[in-house]
Simulated assay, not measured.
Amino acid sequence: MSNDQPPGPPPEDDPFRKKPQEPQGPEGNQGSPGPQGPWGPQEPTPPPGGPPPPQGGGPYGAPPPGSPHGAPPPGSPYGAPPPPYDAGPYSGSPYGGEADPLRGMPPLADPGKRILARIIDWLIVLIPLALIGIPFGVYDGITEQSNDFDDLVTNVNTGSQWIFQIISILAYVGYDTLMVRKTGQTIGKKLMKLRVALLQDGSTPDTGSSLMRAAVLWLPQLICCPCLWPLILLIMILVDKPYRQGLHDKAAKTVVVSTTQ
């Protein structure tokens, strides 16, 4: 009996029949297509030994290690905000929980040095004015025999006295304005190593701020309150927190700080 196979096409279950090659993936790796889902074919099953399929979680790839449920790590701009800043001793101040308002600023000027600087500036302007006042009759009626206050006031309130008063205002206000506008220092402040600076950024005050500061500083003192006004300014400097500003500093938004020059 012969073992030759009968002629004709091989049967469907013939183990020697060459079957068609399965389709390959885009990179040449063979893999079986995944099952059909409700929205089309699902992700193909990777071949053995290949890289794992990308995990779901967002358009930027897999979540970082140690981050549960794909959440970014704490402190990132896309996650939970960082813990609130500890304001330290300023947390109970009228500035709320903001940072130290004096951070980055030079040391504030000592009130005693500010007083000495003001006395020096006052004398620098006063001495020339005392000499200029002689031809204006500033000292008329001020004699050893004149003790009547009414006579003194009458002698002072003459036309020449008013002219001299205007000159005095221009001298004090002009001196302070020009010196502060130029370097932030009058002669007295330079000797005491102090400087006037804008509170906002520490720069030298401009003309408007310098003029405002000088006007509030000198006008009340020269016109109506020669003794009371300096006392009010001194009290304000001593009690003001945290910048030790007098009324003239608050009006011009300035602060007086220590300097090395």
Rank of each mutant, 00 (worst) to 15 (best):
residue 59 P to I: 08
residue 183 T to F: 11
residue 51 P to W: 10
residue 91 S to D: 13
residue 224 C to Q: 08
residue 60 Y to P: 00
residue 31 G to K: 10
residue 52 P to H: 04
residue 219 L to G: 05
residue 35 P to S: 15
residue 26 P to V: 10
residue 81 P to S: 07
residue 150 D to F: 01
residue 254 T to S: 10
residue 139 Y to E: 06
residue 146 S to N: 15
residue 131 L to M: 14
residue 77 P to M: 13
residue 199 L to S: 06
residue 14 D to Q: 06
residue 120 I to G: 04
residue 61 G to W: 05
residue 259 T to E: 09
residue 33 P to E: 13
residue 15 P to V: 04
residue 137 G to I: 04
residue 83 P to A: 14
residue 55 Q to A: 15
residue 212 M to T: 10
residue 110 D to M: 00
residue 124 I to Y: 02
residue 222 L to V: 04
residue 218 W to I: 01
residue 38 P to N: 09
residue 38 P to H: 08
residue 19 K to W: 13
residue 227 C to N: 12
residue 180 V to G: 02
residue 128 P to Y: 07
residue 206 D to A: 12
residue 27 E to W: 11
residue 212 M to K: 10
residue 49 G to H: 09
residue 200 Q to Y: 02
residue 92 G to I: 03
residue 245 Q to I: 03
residue 85 Y to Q: 14
residue 53 P to W: 00
residue 173 V to E: 01
residue 11 P to Y: 11
residue 116 L to R: 01
residue 95 Y to E: 05
residue 65 P to V: 07
residue 202 G to V: 05
residue 40 G to E: 08
residue 178 L to R: 05
residue 86 D to F: 08
residue 142 I to T: 03
residue 230 P to Y: 11
residue 224 C to M: 14
residue 246 G to M: 01
residue 89 P to G: 04
residue 224 C to L: 15
residue 192 M to F: 06
residue 111 P to I: 01
residue 245 Q to T: 03
residue 124 I to T: 04
residue 130 A to D: 06
residue 103 R to P: 00
residue 28 G to L: 07
residue 1 M to K: 08
residue 179 M to Y: 10
